[in-house]
Measured scan of single mutants.
Amino acid sequence: PEDLERKVRELQKNGVSPEQIEKILRRDGVDEREVQELVKKVS
């Protein structure tokens, strides 16, 4: 979803590592495939 992507970009802009971003997304209940997609987009 659009807002998730925005969140991921925000986190990355704040210097959060892709690994941390993955953890955060998983903790928020984002589905694994979605997590991978989002992280791939920003890394």
Rank of each mutant, 00 (worst) to 15 (best):
E22S: 09
E34K: 14
Q20F: 05
L11V: 00
E22H: 07
I21P: 00
V8T: 01
G15S: 02
E10T: 11
V39D: 01
Q12R: 14
K40A: 12
I24G: 01
N14L: 14
E19F: 05
V39F: 07
V16C: 12
E2F: 13
I21V: 03
E34S: 12
D31Q: 06
G15V: 01
L38T: 04
Q20P: 00
Q20V: 09
K40M: 08
K23M: 13
K41G: 08
Q12T: 12
S43F: 15
K23D: 11
D31P: 13
L4E: 01
R6S: 10
G15P: 00
R27A: 14
V8P: 00
Q12P: 00
R6T: 09
E2M: 13
E22C: 15
Q20N: 09
V30L: 14
N14D: 06
E19T: 07
V30Y: 15
L4V: 06
Q36N: 06
S17R: 06
K7M: 11
E32G: 05
Q36T: 06
E10A: 11
R33E: 09
V30P: 01
K40D: 08
P1N: 13
D3W: 13
K41Y: 06
E5I: 13
R27Q: 11
V8S: 01
E5K: 10
G15F: 02
E19W: 08
K13G: 05
L4M: 06
D3Y: 12
E22Y: 12
E34C: 14
R6M: 11
E34D: 10
L25E: 00
I21Q: 01
D3P: 06
I24S: 02
P1A: 11
L38Y: 05
V16M: 14
S43K: 12
P1H: 13
E37Q: 08
E34Y: 14
P18H: 07
P18S: 09
K41R: 11
D3T: 11
R26W: 04
L11N: 00
R33D: 10
L25G: 00
L25Y: 01
L38Q: 03
D3Q: 09
S17L: 07
V16D: 02
V16L: 14
R26A: 07
I24A: 03
E34R: 15
S43H: 10
K13W: 06
I21F: 01
N14A: 13
Q36H: 12
S17G: 06
R27E: 13
V30T: 03
V35F: 06
L11Y: 07
E10P: 00
S43C: 14
K7Q: 05
E37L: 08
R9Q: 05
G29T: 01
L25F: 02
E10N: 10
L11D: 00
S43E: 09
Q36F: 05
R27G: 07
R6K: 11
R26T: 07
Q12L: 15
K13R: 13
E2W: 12
P18N: 11
I21D: 00
K40E: 10
V39S: 02
K7A: 05
R27L: 10
P1D: 10
V35E: 01
V16T: 06
L25Q: 00
D31T: 10
G29K: 02
R6I: 06
V8Q: 00
Q36V: 08
Q12Y: 15
K7F: 13
R26G: 03
D3R: 08
V8R: 02
E5T: 07
L38F: 05
V35Y: 06
V30M: 09
V8F: 06
E22I: 15
G15N: 04
L25I: 02
S17H: 06
R33G: 08
E32L: 07
N14M: 14
K13D: 05
V39Q: 03
L25S: 00
